[in-house]
C-alpha cells in the first residue's frame, strides 16, 4: 500500500517536472510545478515531515508560485515570442550531459541504504521542529530575517521604474 502511494506520487512529481520545462505557455508550467510540489508533499508526509509538508504547501505552492503567476501575467508572457532558437545545435549536448549527471547521481544513490527503524510520534511535528528552530538553530533562524529584509529591499530596488 505504502509502495503504491510512493509510486503514484513519484510518477506524478516526475511527469509534472518534465512538463514544466516542456510546455510552451509559462502559466501552464507554473501549474505543473504546483502539481509536482503537491506530489512531493505527499512524500514528505510519508517521511513524517509534517511541519515541512505544511510549509511546502503554504510557502511554495501558496506564495512563491503565486509570485511567478503574478509576474507572468503582469508581463503578459502568454504570447511572448522568443524568436529563432539559438540553442538548436547545442541542445542534444544538454541532454547528453543531463543523462550523464543523472547516471552519476543514481549510481551514487545506490549506495545509500539505511535500515528503516521506528520513530516516536512527535518526529517532524510542528512543536518538535519549532523546538529545534528556537533552540539548537536559533542563530541561523534569526539570520533568515536579515536575508528576507535584504530580499525585500533588493526586489523593490530592482523592480522600480526608471531607476
Amino acid at each position: 500500500m505504502e509502495m503504491l502511494i510512493f509510486a503514484v506520487a513519484a510518477i506524478v512529481a516526475l511527469a509534472s517536472a518534465v512538463m514544466v520545462i516542456a510546455v510552451k505557455n509559462p502559466v501552464g508550467g507554473v501549474l505543473f510545478l504546483i502539481m509536482s510540489i503537491a506530489a512531493q508533499t505527499v512524500l514528505y508526509i510519508m517521511l513524517s515531515g509534517i511541519f515541512v509538508a505544511a510549509f511546502m504547501i503554504l510557502v511554495y505552492a501558496g506564495a512563491i508560485m503565486v509570485l511567478f503567476l503574478f509576474v507572468i501575467m503582469m508581463l503578459n508572457l502568454r504570447h511572448a515570442d522568443l524568436g529563432p532558437d539559438s540553442l538548436r545545435r547545442v541542445k542534444p549536448l544538454a541532454w547528453v550531459f543531463g543523462s550523464v549527471l543523472l547516471a552519476e547521481l543514481v549510481w551514487v544513490s545506490m549506495a545509500a541504504s539505511m535500515p528503516a527503524s521506528g520513530i516516536d510520534e512527535t518526529f517532524g511535528s510542528v512543536p518538535a521542529v519549532s523546538r529545534l528552530l528556537y533552540g539548537k538553530f536559533v542563530y541561523p533562524f534569526e539570520l533568515t530575517s536579515v536575508l528576507l529584509l535584504a530580499a525585500i529591499i533588493g526586489a523593490v530596488v530592482m523592480a522600480r521604474k526608471g531607476s
Binding site: 510549509f55 509570485l67 539505511m114 539548537k136 533562524f141 528576507l148 530580499a151 533588493g154
Partner: peptide, 29 residues
C-alpha cells in the same frame, strides 16, 4: 532525516525554502 532519525534536516529544509523565497522575489524583480 527520516532514516537517520534526526530532525536537523527539517530545519535545513526550512532554511532552504526561505532562501528559495528570497531568491524568487529578487530573481523575478
Amino acid at each position: 532525516s527520516r532514516f537517520l532519525k534526526l530532525m536537523d534536516g527539517h530545519v535545513f529544509v526550512f532554511l532552504v525554502m526561505t532562501v528559495a523565497a528570497a531568491e524568487a522575489a529578487v530573481g523575478l524583480a
